[in-house]
Design a protein around this nucleic acid. Sequence first.
DNA 1: GCATATGGAGAACGATCGTTCTCCAATGGC
DNA 2: GCCATTGGAGAACGATCGTTCTCCATATGC
Lengths: 193, 193
Amino acid sequence: MDRETARQQVLDAAQQLFYSRGIQAVGMDAVRNASGVSLKRLYQLFPSKDELVLEFLQQRDSRWQRALADYVAAQPGPEERISAVFDWLYQWFSEPDYRGCAFINSFGELGAVSPGVAEQARQHKRAFHDYLARLVTASGRPAELADQLALLAEGAITTSAIFHTPEPARQAGDAARLLMRTHSDSDLAKPPR
Amino acid sequence: MDRETARQQVLDAAQQLFYSRGIQAVGMDAVRNASGVSLKRLYQLFPSKDELVLEFLQQRDSRWQRALADYVAAQPGPEERISAVFDWLYQWFSEPDYRGCAFINSFGELGAVSPGVAEQARQHKRAFHDYLARLVTASGRPAELADQLALLAEGAITTSAIFHTPEPARQAGDAARLLMRTHSDSDLAKPPR
DNA sequence: GCATATGGAGAACGATCGTTCTCCAATGGC
DNA sequence: GCCATTGGAGAACGATCGTTCTCCATATGC
């Protein structure tokens, strides 16, 4: 088996296992069984479990970002694109094995003990925030709106995970559209009172 | 040493250790060292680590709820009380060893593998949401506002943990006040268009 | 004062986990 | 055909962890 396909099989198995059960609950033997790659090969592809975990997070970040961006970019205008972020979240939360944000989960599990995991979580969340900020700027609204939308999205992500329902994405989308109206140029023109 | 004080010493040590390092990263030996209670006694007070973890979460929930409610109840009116929730969050996030919500962290770590932990997280989040809903109802605003405020608060909790700054509480408070104005009786009177 | 119960310190046990090692089959170059 | 390299299966090793056990000191009831 090709070295690169072996790597991908290991990373795919890691995606499924680490995300669904948590990192410390998954042993390297489970990764080996799920990937069909021998322990020996596994360790020459990834020198330690820590390295595998970091690559798992990096791959998840890039896939997640791309999936979101592809969905959003299909929308015609700036307002629709912002709204589409929450539609995409709704779809994500509706996946049957949705278990929240892998970065928040990993941060809660290992953030205090693994600087690398904490850094990956920061990078992922910063990238999401910056992406939202670009959408907000493109719609001609102030940067604070991006902060607020990011909070709504993060809240929806964890609430949906804990209660296992996509509904928070709808609530967050409603709130987002209200805030967008509040931050629209016409409303900003007239001072609040 | 009295049995009840021994219990409290163990639970206090568990609070500090489990919260700051994560549950699986803390062994029973660490709890024993931090609490000054012998392993033998520890195991006759709590029959297993799982039981200790559940009691840790229950105690954390009741302390957290009480601290928030005490702070909020000191405010004069319904609007101020809602706003005070986010002020209290700001103070919480400013504690030097703030590490996010123990329930979100525990859920990410053990939610998939321990039904008890998952249930504690649901109870905690439901209690917070219901508390917000009471504040919102008391201010004469619709129930959807409570959903939205809860999402803002959850988002601020995790964002503050990951970036180690209390700033998200301020941003969430700003958004909350905008949404409160949107949901105020006067604004509801005139349809949105 | 003595028997009995209680608790402390820490060794010990069994399981699990990350990692490495052994042994052997397969493959490819010459 | 032979040898060197690679990889597979899984045993083995060392560490850690949850839990229990041993041994001994202390205290309490009579």
